[in-house]
């Protein structure tokens, strides 16, 4: 087994573990809003590790560029879909019984860029 294959295997296996764990989270978490977070893990880190692993296998080819594009596309669309889901659930009146609403108005604003 070459070095590239070893690295790719490591990335793929850790990505697989994340996928399954996040899948468990989607089933196990108690409420819709909490399940959104588990789905977020799949869209960011698990997908990233997976695509990076396959990219290592393909080396510096056009295929790797395409994988990168898939990843960037996922990064752009997944928060949009996620936010749209959360917002429409919120506007439709879905509330989480256990959750409190906290106002963090005056907590911190130092270190602003302008």
């Amino acid at each position: 087994m070459s070095l590239a294959e070893g690295v790719a295997g490591l990335l793929l296996i850790s990505g697989s573990v994340l996928l399954v764990v996040a899948g468990v989270g989607i089933v196990r978490f108690p409420h819709f809003y909490t399940r959104l977070h588990a789905a977020g893990v799949i869209d960011t880190l698990a997908a990233g590790l997976f695509l990076a692993g396959i990219g290592v296998l393909f080396g510096a080819t056009l295929g790797t560029v395409k994988l990168l594009m898939i990843f960037v596309f996922l990064l752009f669309t997944s928060p949009t879909a996620c936010h749209a889901l959360a917002r429409s659930a919120w506007l439709a009146g879905l509330r989480e019984p256990a959750a409190t609403i906290e106002n963090a108005e005056d907590s911190k604003s130092a270190g602003e860029p302008r």
Binding site: I26, F32, I42, D43, F50, L51, I70, L74, A81
Partner: peptide
Amino acid sequence: TVYDRILAVNSFGTKTVLLITL
């Protein structure tokens, strides 16, 4: 809720993308 189902389907689709690359 219907939102849970849409979330699950969306997540399913992301995994399909990963499966196709595999």
